[in-house]
Amino acid sequence: MMKMGVHTLATIAILALASSLTYASDPSPLQDFCVATNDPALFVNGMFCSDPMLATADDFFFHGLNIPRSTANSLGSNVTLLDVTKIAGLNTLGVSLARIDFAPYGLNPPHTHPRATEILVVVEGIIYVGFVSSNSNPTNRLFTKLLYPGDVFVFPQGLIHFQFNVANTTGVTFSGLGSQNPGLIVIANNVFGSTPPISPDVLTKAFKLDKNVIEFLQKEFYTAT
């Protein structure tokens, strides 16, 4: 496994965030900053600003992204997302950052970010990545690449994509995302694990599978709330 220092990780994270500014899609701020605050009584497209005179350096700070996360799960991966809920100072700035840890042969399954383009850099592992275009021209085209440490890949906003560590060692990647709240739709979880469940008749016809298979998948992905 490749050894990395804190300074190396910090540099990579900064580069990923800086690169993501190019693809930022959230509304541009009209002030220097707008540190997020929670108000359960009201809803806005984003988050309310706290008094800028009360802002501190800690509103723009997160500690510990160099620490490996547990990958002891069925997929063998763990995503640490630093969005506006983790760093309040990201509010209105149009960026966030993610670290993904992979076990050997770990998978970050097909998913989309409805509000963000993602730019990923590999630090450890050999990561097979890909995304699928929409049903416009070219129709459902798969773009894939095998990435090694130091390689970078871009996933366009809203398109289904995945990352798979094909090495027998652990993997680490960092991603800059062009939104303070990029959103996440994990395809299998959302389709087969919705609450309440989508009618098996709908999924049977959509996926051209036997109804028993659909019902089995719904049981596998269902999570009680």
Rank of each mutant, 00 (worst) to 15 (best):
H161K: 02
N140L: 12
V172S: 04
V154H: 01
F155A: 00
Q163T: 04
G183P: 07
V152W: 03
G183L: 08
N137H: 14
Q163M: 14
V186G: 07
L147K: 01
S179C: 06
V186N: 09
F143V: 15
N140P: 01
K145W: 01
D151C: 08
V166P: 03
Y148T: 15
H161Y: 08
N181M: 12
F174W: 04
P149Y: 05
L159A: 03
N168M: 14
F143A: 03
P149R: 06
N168F: 15
F155H: 07
P138M: 12
S179H: 07
L146C: 09
V152S: 01
V154F: 02
V172L: 15
F153K: 01
N168R: 12
Q180H: 12
V152C: 02
N140E: 12
S179T: 04
G150L: 14
T139K: 10
N135V: 06
G171C: 06
I185D: 04
T170Y: 03
A167D: 12
P149L: 05
S136C: 07
G150F: 15
N140W: 10
L142C: 09
F153C: 05
V172A: 04
L147D: 01
L159P: 03
T173Y: 02
Q157M: 12
R141K: 15
N165S: 10
L184Y: 09
G171Q: 05
L177D: 01
N135I: 06
T169D: 11
L142V: 14
N181G: 11
F143H: 14
L146E: 14
F155S: 00
N168K: 13
P138F: 15
P138V: 10
G171V: 05
